[in-house]
Amino acid sequence: MSTSSREAVPTWGWMLGVSSWLVPVFFGPGFAWIGFFIVGAVSRRGVAYVAGLASGILGFTIGVEVWGGFTDIVAAVVHLAGIVVALALNPAWLRTLWERRVARTDKNRPAAWRRAEEPAATASARPARGSRRSSKRASKPAPPQESNRLAESVGATSADLLQTSEPAEPVDVQTASTDEIADLPGMNRTKARRAVRARTKQGGFVSVEQFGEAAGLQPHEIVRLRSAATCSPRPRGERRFGRRVDL
């Protein structure tokens, strides 16, 4: 798999490999704590440490048969609970590792790619210097073959080099309409309507991540969404005052 900074979508192989920490959890309470402690140590999530500690203690009590005749029942319940907690933690785990991967590869990008990403508006606004001949040479676009070679060298396509402008202002998912939300990366009208219904039911979102999860986006799609969306503070409910009656 390419490690280019332009790799915007994780492959199934990458997600399956990163999700391999679930294997000890599926083996039972006696091994589940290993997977939880791996997640806690790498992502530094306190809930993973708590789940690992609880799983280890309960697995030990099951192994020494503290529960007597209820040992099998307790083992089944603990096993099922561990699987549910692990599956709930895995999306955040994938998102954390993918963000680190993108940040690491972006930091090591070639300088040529960073120059190619500069907005065209900045280049056009720069005052012209030198002779008329040099101005024409500077404004002349790069040949298509050279652009393609540059894109291939960083693992992108030539279409990515044509995206020279960014949205003037990120979309506020707290107040945006269905049409505005549908235009965001990874969204469509079905997901936008789902997000608006969740926003109305919950009284607003607390973060872009909560919005993305409510819309049903994948972890890598939520990462892409952060550059185009923002989330203002949740509106406070109407304050009501009661009338005191003396009896």
Rank of each mutant, 00 (worst) to 15 (best):
T157K: 08
L80T: 15
T200Y: 04
G237V: 06
R132F: 00
E65K: 15
H79D: 08
R239T: 11
L225A: 02
A75I: 01
L97N: 10
S135G: 04
F60D: 00
T164S: 04
P235S: 02
W14D: 01
F70M: 15
T105F: 02
P219H: 09
R44L: 10
I181N: 10
R114Y: 06
T200W: 10
I57E: 03
I222D: 03
A32V: 07
L89T: 01
R101D: 13
W98E: 09
V9A: 00
G40Y: 11
V84L: 15
L184R: 08
R114G: 04
D72Y: 10
D183C: 04
R189S: 12
G40K: 01
W98R: 13
R189G: 01
S177T: 14
L225I: 09
A51K: 04
R197W: 00
G17V: 04
A192R: 06
A86V: 10
D183H: 04
N188S: 10
V66D: 00
A229V: 09
A128P: 08
R226H: 14
I83C: 12
N90K: 01
A75W: 09
R44D: 10
T200M: 05
T96F: 12
V23N: 05
S2G: 07
Q174V: 04
A92C: 00
C231I: 03
S227A: 12
A168R: 13
S227V: 09
S5N: 06
W12S: 08
R193N: 12
R45D: 11
P29L: 07
